[in-house]
């Protein structure tokens, strides 16, 4: 049985619908399904959806759509959620070069976790991480499923610039920086995969609900080979 749907007012051109107030798999699956269902219905006047951990913000044109009608439509779609034919989530491989100059904090994470560097790499690359939300910067995935043994506090002083593709850990989260940005996460490695390519046909390689799987690159040569291949390709992953 689905939890009850809750609507939150958000001005006259956005409506927030909340499916719960915790972060868990079931709620996030429902978010993914309802987002898919609303998008599939092409409701006239709906401009875009912003799904997050446990809610969806629906931006609409108030001249085309009455908020009461919108609430009614969303409630009906939610009741019929179980009957929709939801596509299987994709699992996207993120080849990662751990440690060295691409992962300057790997040794600190190992020390903090009382593990060896090899154990950290093995634990981090063994899990499959579902994407619960995308936000913060273009293409930044909020991932669930970091092994609690790897949980490490943020840097005391954030770095001014972290290169795009850097893989990091902050508390019990792991993530990837899609664009060069300042940040305080512990950087354990870097991927040559481009999470955000604004000028390519598909600027992003994943959607909310997809899974990420980190794989291990053994040396810089492999890293640069993949990077070059991606730069030459119309697509942005391998």
């Amino acid at each position: 049985m689905n939890t009850e749907l809750k609507f939150l007012s958000a001005g006259n051109q956005s409506l927030v619908t909340e499916l719960g107030n915790t972060i868990n798999n079931e709620i996030n699956q429902n978010i993914r399904a309802l987002t898919y269902s609303i998008e599939k219905n092409n409701i006239d006047g709906v401009i875009e959806l912003i799904p997050s951990y446990r809610s969806i913000m629906i931006n609409f044109d108030p001249l085309k759509l009455c908020i009461l009608d919108l609430k009614k439509t969303i409630s009906e779609l939610y009741l019929n959620l179980k009957s929709i034919d939801l596509p299987e989530p994709k699992t996207i491989e993120i080849p990662t070069l751990y440690g060295g100059k691409q992962g300057p904090d790997l040794e600190f994470v190992a020390k903090n976790s009382k593990l060896t560097v090899e154990e950290v790499i093995s634990i981090h690359s063994n899990n499959i991480y579902p994407i619960f939300m995308i936000g913060f910067t273009p293409g930044f995935p909020y991932l669930k499923g970091l092994d609690q043994r790897l949980s490490t506090p943020r840097l005391k002083t954030p770095r001014i610039s972290i290169p795009e593709g850097s893989v990091g850990i902050a508390e019990n989260q792991t993530g990837i920086y899609p664009i060069k940005s300042p940040g305080g996460w512990q950087i354990i490695g870097r991927t040559p995969i481009k999470l955000f390519s604004p000028n390519k046909l598909n600027p992003f390689i994943f959607n909310i609900g997809d899974n990420l799987k980190f794989t291990i690159l053994s040396n810089e040569k492999e890293f640069y080979e993949i990077e070059e291949k991606i730069n030459l390709s119309k697509e942005n992953s391998i």
Partner: peptide, 10 residues
């Protein structure tokens, strides 16, 4: 709060 969408003008 648990992060959610930011409406324009919020």
């Amino acid at each position: 709060i648990i992060s959610d969408g930011s409406p324009n003008g919020s």
